[in-house]
Design a protein around this nucleic acid. Structure first.
Lengths: 153, 153
DNA sequence: AACCAGACCATGATATCCCATAAATATCCA
DNA sequence: TGGATATTTATGGGATATCATGGTCTGGTT
């Protein structure tokens, strides 16, 4: 299973290129040549990315909404309509489209945050805030990892 | 199941490398090549770690949340975003990232404490304190280990 | 010509590999 | 039993590969 973990902040050069962390590329394994998919996160000013093959699964999950429902339409439009498929150059970089750079408010740097099966791209400052907020949520709402059958920990 | 027990203190060299106790590596068995996962402990100024396969398990459990749900996002940010995946070199060492060394206040030495399925890494001095406190808690509050539900696992 | 994306090459920093050593432990065998 | 020999561990250091980053060149489009 491809798991993106840790956070890395890399430089966004003036051509819009940024190195995807080597460990993220490694997580893709032999599917790295298929590239990744990026789109605007709905809830945050950041970008989200998946490995290409995960798009199919998203499609399947969307089926669980009523066909023609507003929700499905909205989500499909937001995800499929606005995603971009990016390939790595020889050095493991991708070129971020101008509008996505703007949406995430990226400047000279981009921080990649591994979230398991997906990852996010933030401006370092915005992510610092987000990190704090996430911790507070976890603490206040006492969020935990759902137990498996064997009652974890 | 990998069981980490006993405590060992090893040297942290100037490259940031430290030998993981041989018995810990042995506990990993044939999964040693997958490496371990480290992250900041929430409650103490130390690091915590477990074998890589537990991370995969967490990943699987997180899948049970709705995609793009706030809960999944918050948890993933707090857990995956802040962990690092470390591999052993030929001599059984790992390289601790600078920020983790700082968080745990490690100097020339690092003490590994086996806690069963997970282990911790402390500065020797900080652990001495912690040990005393833990003993007192156990004595004063007469803490015991709950009977297992058995069968599981 | 001006522009842009993509391929390619160059570089410094750093992580990783590989070998050497020393101490501790285990193993063997007379 | 004891004493010699091998293994395992922890540790250090130098060589090598990888990574992130910047730049250049080329071909296609406008």
């Amino acid at each position: 299973m491809a798991l993106f973990i840790s956070t890395f902040t890399n430089r966004l050069d003036r051509k819009g290129r940024v190195s995807v962390p080597a460990s993220f590329r490694a997580a893709l394994g032999d599917r790295a040549h298929l590239g990744v998919v990026l789109f605007r996160a709905h809830r945050h000013a950041c970008l989200e990315g998946f490995e290409w093959s995960r798009m199919e699964e998203i499609g399947r999950r969307l089926e669980h909404f009523d066909l023609f429902s507003d929700e499905q339409d909205d989500l499909a439009t937001a995800i499929f309509g606005e995603s971009v498929h990016l390939h790595f150059d020889g050095e493991g970089r991708v070129m971020l489209p101008e509008d996505l750079i703007e949406y995430a408010g990226l400047g000279e740097q981009a921080t990649f945050v591994g979230l398991g099966r997906k990852f996010q791209i933030w401006s370092p400052q915005a992510f610092a805030e987000r990190k704090k907020a996430a911790h507070e949520q976890v603490r206040e709402r006492r969020l935990t990892i759902p137990a498996g059958r064997e009652g974890a920990e």
